[in-house]
Design a protein around this nucleic acid. Sequence first.
DNA 1: GGTACATGCGCC
DNA 2: AAATGGCGCATGTACC
Length: 643
Amino acid sequence: MKVPSFVTDPDPQLYEHGSYVVLDFETTNINFGSALVPENRLLLACWSIITPHSDGTCTTQHKYRWGSEYDMQELVLDIQDVDFLVAQNAKFELQWLERCGYDIGSRPVYDTLVAEWVLAGGRRWTFDLDSIAKRYKVGGKESIVSKLIKGGVPTEDIPRSMLLRYCIRDVEVTHAVMRKQLEKMRGTRLLAITYTRCLTTIVLADIEGNGMHLDAGRVEAEYEKTLQEFVQVEREMEELTGGINPNSPKQVADYLYETLGFDEVLSRWGKPLRTSTDKPKTDADTIQALNATTPEQIEFLDLKQRQGKLHAALTKNLEFFIGACREQGGTFLGQINQARTVTHRLASSGVPTKFKAYPKPKSCQFQNLPRQFKNLFAARKEGWYVAEADGAQLEFRVAGHLGKDEQIEYEILNDVDIHAFTALTLTEAGEPTDRQGAKESTFRPLYGGSSGSPAVEAYCKAFVEKYHQLNSTQRGWVLEAADRGYIETEWGMRYYFPYLKTTKSGYIQGQQSVYNYPVQALATAEIIPIALVFFWYRTREADLFIVNTVHDSIICEVPEKEIELFSITVVQALTEDVYGYLDKVYGMRFTIPLGVGTKIGHHWNEADEDVATRVHEALKDIGSGLKIDKGEVGLDIPPPPRT
DNA sequence: GGTACATGCGCC
DNA sequence: AAATGGCGCATGTACC
């Protein structure tokens, strides 16, 4: 499908001179009124239409309409008549507008919540409309209706006149906030950032409605197996300990350090490693590091480690999965949230769901699903595939670009194995490590880490020397942050660091965040969302659909006939489209080749070799370094030459 | 009885 | 004295 010009040739100045509708809906409030809950109903829409004129003035028209999604034709026509749509938390309005028959991809949105998140630049502000309004001194104090809704009063029970006043007021406040935000962004490069974020909002509004789908047979088997093992472990623990609660850090600590007489793990300075409130630690890493000598000690550590893992697997995932399979056909929804993270990554949260089998509602988010359970997910349609594409070594390559680091560029162009260097350095420093074991240390110094075991410290030093151009760039960021209180990234985003402190020794506390934010942000807050937007538009008329995105990846359900379409389009979106967008919108020429890896099979993360052969064939004339390994197909696409 | 915090664990 | 970033959910405990 053709990608609209407001994506291929964006002009963020549209927000300054275009016509727009400011919209607010009132709905019944199951799960905060989400349009994705079929039982929710639309009650009321209030909107203003703002039409600018060539002489600098503008006309404003106010409208409202009581009724359901089937009564909103006039609203839809009004939106179709303007350049863009404005709302606070536009994802919510877009999901309702979808139910009203509006094409949510047809024009840009301006989301005051998202814009405020951009302006916050990493400061932990609150982003509800009342808080924002208060900061801009518009709109007065929180209304009674707002408190009633928060207090759980059904919206439909609130007197109509009150609800109408409330809704009109929210439209006015949203509009006033928008004008203030635009004012504040003038003279900065934040408008373009806001534009990118708001394009992403549209796509998220759509993806959230799809949910992910479980293979019920596999879930039942996995649950049964895990439960049996868990029951066995708990029984053995009870016999050994006489009945402590293994989920209580307090009781476990008493048992470990009093009853069993373990010595606490010590830091390099000889002090015990404690929790933030100075209590003895009982987590998996600590238990791994304890020195067991008696048979009782050995047995307990083994049991506790298994118990912790099994308990987490059951309570956080498998019980939820079982509920979803037995009670709702295997498909469940998750939220993908903007305005949560300080770096502008996306976050995910679960949708609280009440299953018959459990007394309390359970939630399951989409970004921390255990790897070992990914293959419990399948496409919901017979014969379809789950296809995942991820940005190859995305943050490392981004670091190479931001640091203008020739060594990183060389290593990417020549496909150098970076973990091998880590393993070698650690081994030479006296701690023999294989490639797999070295992986966890590889990027520690990239994010400002410098300490650890002697060998790890030696590795950190070696890293900093090897990629000295990146390191001096990062140290520059730290100085800028310490000096001005914020940094401005290459693409114009500002991150504030009000809490940086320089110690007597000259060490800047909090510098790790400064090292990290630009790298994490360009990779997972810009490049992946941009790719997501292009991929979504390019495949809107295809049957395939996006079901999830996890920081550096895009996950879809794809019919057999669209395997090639998926592969070619996702590669284009994650590379060429990104180069083009960064250049056009941020004036930024990306210098390092971006790469893509694809994995396609009937279950998530379970590659099908035959499909991989087809993908390999489809991509053979594109890019460079095409390779196929255990069903995963990867390649790089170099950035366009500089002219 | 309800809420807030601490802890631990999962992901990238 | 300590020094790798970013999240969300389940449970236990302290406290009102």
